[in-house]
Computed example of a mutant assay.
Amino acid sequence: MIHNADLRSLNTLRLPGVADAFASFASVSELLTLLDDAERLGLGIKVLGGGSNVLLAGDIHALVIQSAMTRVQVLSQTDAVVRVAVDAGKVWHDWVVESIACGHGLENLALIPGSVGAAPVQNIGAYGVEVAQCLESVVGLQLSTRQLRVLSAGECGFGYRDSVFKRELSRDFVILRVVFRLQRVFQPELSYGPLRQWADNMKAESSDVTPAALIREVCAIRSSKLPSPAEIPNAGSFFKNPVVPTHMGQALKARYPALPVYPQADGSFKLAAGWLIEQAGWKGKWLGNAGMHTEQALVLVTNGQASYGDVTALKDAVIRDVAERFAVVLEPEPQPF
């Protein structure tokens, strides 16, 4: 256990903050010992994943814990499906790359920053795929009861960038392991325009769309749009793509024909937040030590010297200007920590 631990390097926006204590755990028994230690010290518990979806709001008066468990275990397989348990501390992208040796379905989620344990919290998604589609269950420890729980995919309450772990179980659950249900037969999801064009080009060149090739292309697309947190502090896509009622989506599309809209099953429309932010004049614009990226207006970046206040001021300004122009209220993806 490290006391007075500096957390700047443990969040991808590089926001400053010191925790009363920090510790990683490599087993359930180590986790339980840490919970006992925290109780003895009078400290609460906060769980940190890869730090790519949090807003560090200053000093943390708690014991911050992080999983160092990284085992991958094939549980069972049939001709159609492979079930694989992956520990929460595994780096998400590393697992996606390794997953194709077991089965398929996660390829479009390559290069998303963070850990396996954090993926269900946000129900991460990209290019037509959400992690919920390939998830069977989540295993974890409920802090209030000290009991292990297994939540089925249905019990996780998945929604668009949402889950029970952000609501009812927020701050009361430590994800230890995620069980994935992968398909044995590779059926690539190519509904996203650039991926569909790439696949068409591959076929024209008599080349196969393989799982490894799809991962490489997803990485190339993401790298062209999103800066690496190792090079420019950021938390990836900062705002959710807003979902609006049918009449509002139709009216906005009629008024702004270039606005990308995505019809949903219930008749509502999902709008491209990046386009709204760019049209509101924030692409490449800075406010103090934080700004919206020059290549992708959806990505909030910092110069490495930003505070929580800097990020909040920019976030509020973007939300205000988009709401004033389009009557659409943006919602941030990263959560205050």
Rank of each mutant, 00 (worst) to 15 (best):
S115V: 03
V116R: 04
G50I: 12
L75W: 01
V81M: 10
M69D: 04
E168A: 15
S170G: 08
Q133Y: 02
C102F: 15
V116K: 04
I124C: 10
W95V: 07
E136C: 04
N53P: 06
S115C: 09
F173K: 07
V174I: 14
V64W: 03
I60G: 00
L55H: 04
G114L: 06
V97P: 08
R177K: 15
R167C: 07
G140S: 11
N108A: 12
N108I: 07
A68V: 05
V84M: 04
E130A: 11
L56T: 01
M69T: 12
R149E: 11
M69Q: 13
K90L: 15
G140V: 05
Q142Y: 00
P120W: 00
A118E: 08
E107R: 08
I60E: 11
S163N: 08
M69N: 01
R161G: 02
C134D: 08
I175E: 01
V164K: 10
V164L: 15
G125Y: 09
L75K: 12
L56R: 00
E107A: 09
L176P: 07
Q73C: 11
V97F: 03
V116Q: 05
L63P: 02
D59Y: 06
G51I: 10
R167I: 00
A126S: 13
R71N: 14
G154Y: 08
C156N: 01
L148D: 03
A88N: 09
V116A: 09
R146F: 03
G105I: 01
D59K: 04
G51N: 07
S163E: 11
